[in-house]
Each structure stands twice: as structure tokens, then as C-alpha cells.
């Protein structure tokens, strides 16, 4: 089982400035899953509860000279503590950039360009007889080489990797209707305050492009409706007689017509899903999976300077529902 690669500058930037801080909010521990072509950060795919989060990178998006081999079809996966990973990466970057900045000042003096190497190793930790697996970063500083070892779990067994791959395949299903979230930051502020009022959030999404969020307890009902949002996938024309109804009535009628679905999710999960915006996506879409099995949020990343989707990066979350949807 071998894995070795060099992190590209773009990859360093993507992980350190955007994704790791978003992923840390999803949960401290995740599975890093490496295949011949992709690297995945996966939350809660093997255990049923909690918000599932899938961040997928084509190897070129993060790495150079990517080499992987294992007896399990060149697939390796292990659990890793994201905060340790982030700290290690952050520290190695500070050494790397300092040295690289120094390098650039010397014309022609840069024989071997400085790079950050990442590899899987087994080492004997201090005060231990048993070698342990680590994900190791290595780069050159001014006068020294710097190595950061991040402890990881034992690599997953062949059957666990198969199970992970199966769960990943399952999680790729997209809802039939996706609507684009308006002003993410505003919505995040709103839901943050909603958390104080109740625990269960009703989320309704219609083919007309309506998103309706509601927290309801015995003492209070608090809701927000956003209308005329961009719809991807199945859509329908909003009935004109709906215009003067209350948000609740409009949602009820749309569900009766089969034009909307509603699910109940944990308001904290919903808030977490909005925190993914620290990965700086260009837009976000919410949708309810078939039979209301989960609430999905898909983040879209553009190729810088264009409005074209960057297919090398993808991020989406699946929020478990608390109750079967009534659609």
C-alpha cells in the first residue's frame, strides 16, 4: 500500500484557505479516500446518523506526480482528524512560502524548485513498540527540512473500502428538483437565529422555485419563504391564484398538487450545511431526494473567471430527515 504525491499551489490554496475549514465544521473526523483518479473527504458515510458530506477532487486539482498503489484496486482509505491535518498543512505552508519567497529573489539560483510532498508512512512513534500509520508532509525551509506527521487510523479493510465505495455511489443521486439558494450569508444569519427558537426545521421545496423554511413548536411558529428562485431539473409554472395566499397555505397546496415536497431536518444540521460556504462555492442548490429520503445541498464551483462549472471539484451534503416527507 503506497501513496505519494506533491501538493500543487492550487491544491494548497484549495485545502488550506477553503475546504479544510468548511469540512472541519461538518465534523472533526472524516475519511480520506484516495483512488487512481480522485481524492475524497467523506463524513458519516459508513455510520448512518449525522450529516453526510462528500468533497471530491480530481487528482489534478490538488496533486502533481500522484502515485497510488494497493492490492485493493489502488484504493486507500483511512480516518483522519481534520483539525490536525489543517494545523499540519498550515505550518508546512508557512515554512514553504517563506523559503519559496526567498528563492524567487535569486535569479537562476533555483535548481530544484521547492515543493510540498505528501505521503503515507508507517513510523514508530515515541514511547511505543508498535509502528503507526501517518500522513506525512515534507518540505524544505531555509536551513532545514520540515516534516509534519499527522496520525491516521489503520487503513480500512478491503470490505470496508467496498462499503465506502458503495455508500459513495449511493450518495451521488441527485434530487429531481434543485433550487438555487438566494443570498447564502443572509440565509445563514437567519438560520443561526432560528436555532434559538426550535430544533426541528421543516424544509419545503417546490417546482415553482419556492423555498419555505419553518420552525414550529407549541409556543411559536417562525418561518421564511423565498420565491422565484432558479430551478434546475423538474420545474412547473406557479399557479397565478397562489399569489395572495400565506406562505403556509401556498406550500400546503403545492404539496397537494404534487408540485412540492417537504421534509423535517435538524435545524443544526441545516445550519452546518450552510457553513460549507467557507469553501467559497459560487452557488448552492437545495433539493429533496426521492421519497423524501434526505435533503441534499449541492455546491457549485466555477472555473475562475468563467461561469462554467469546474468539474474537478465537487461538494455536496445530505441531511438526514427526522420524519418521512409527506409528499
Amino acid at each position: 500500500m503506497k501513496f505519494k504525491a506533491f501538493l500543487t499551489d492550487n491544491g494548497v490554496n484549495l485545502l488550506d484557505k477553503r475546504f479544510l475549514q468548511a469540512l472541519e465544521k461538518m465534523g472533526k473526523i472524516c475519511h480520506l479516500y484516495l483512488t487512481r483518479d480522485h481524492a475524497y473527504f467523506l463524513h458519516n458515510l459508513l455510520n448512518g446518523d449525522g450529516i453526510q458530506c462528500i468533497a471530491q477532487f480530481r487528482k489534478e486539482a490538488l496533486f502533481d506526480e500522484y502515485r497510488i498503489s494497493s492490492q485493493n484496486d489502488d484504493r486507500i482509505s483511512f480516518a483522519i482528524d481534520l483539525s490536525l491535518l489543517h494545523r499540519a498543512l498550515h505550518s508546512i505552508i508557512s515554512v514553504y512560502t517563506e523559503f519559496s519567497a526567498g528563492d524567487s529573489g535569486v535569479p537562476g539560483g533555483n535548481s530544484a524548485p521547492n515543493r510540498i510532498q505528501i505521503k503515507l508512512v508507517k513510523k514508530l512513534p515515541p514511547h511505543s513498540q508498535q509502528p503507526m500509520p501517518f500522513l506525512t508532509f515534507e518540505t524544505k525551509g531555509y536551513k532545514s527540512a520540515v516534516i509534519q506527521d499527522v496520525p491516521i487510523s489503520k487503513p480500512l479493510s478491503r470490505s470496508d473500502v467496498l462499503e465506502l465505495q458503495a455508500a459513495l455511489d449511493m450518495a451521488q443521486d441527485l434530487p429531481q428538483t434543485l433550487i438555487q439558494v438566494p443570498a447564502m450569508q443572509q440565509l445563514q444569519n437567519f438560520v443561526e437565529k432560528m436555532k434559538n427558537v426550535g430544533d426541528v426545521l421543516n424544509v419545503s421545496i417546490s417546482k415553482y422555485g419556492d423555498l419555505h423554511l419553518q420552525v414550529s413548536t407549541t409556543l411559536i411558529t417562525l418561518g421564511a419563504e423565498f420565491r422565484k428562485l432558479t430551478v434546475i431539473g423538474e420545474q412547473a409554472q406557479s399557479p397565478t391564484e397562489d399569489q395572495n395566499l400565506s406562505a403556509q397555505s401556498r406550500t400546503r397546496i403545492a404539496i397537494q398538487r404534487g408540485d412540492a415536497m417537504t421534509v423535517q431536518v435538524n435545524v443544526k444540521h441545516f445550519f452546518k450545511s450552510l457553513q460549507c460556504q467557507s469553501a467559497k462555492p459560487d452557488c448552492a442548490f437545495y433539493g429533496i431526494a426521492q421519497q423524501g429520503s434526505c435533503l441534499t445541498v449541492v455546491f457549485q464551483f466555477f472555473i475562475p473567471g468563467t461561469h462554467q462549472t469546474d468539474k474537478a471539484i465537487s461538494l455536496h451534503c445530505r441531511l438526514p430527515v427526522l420524519d418521512t416527507g409527506s409528499s
Binding site: T221, L222, G223, E225, F226, R227, K228, A247
Partner: peptide, 11 residues
């Protein structure tokens, strides 16, 4: 605005 609305009912 007509395209977004927040509401609450307090018992």
C-alpha cells in the same frame, strides 16, 4: 419584498 417573506406566530 414580494419574493421573500419572514413570518412568526407567537402563542
Amino acid at each position: 419584498s414580494s419574493d421573500s417573506c419572514t413570518y412568526a406566530e407567537i402563542r
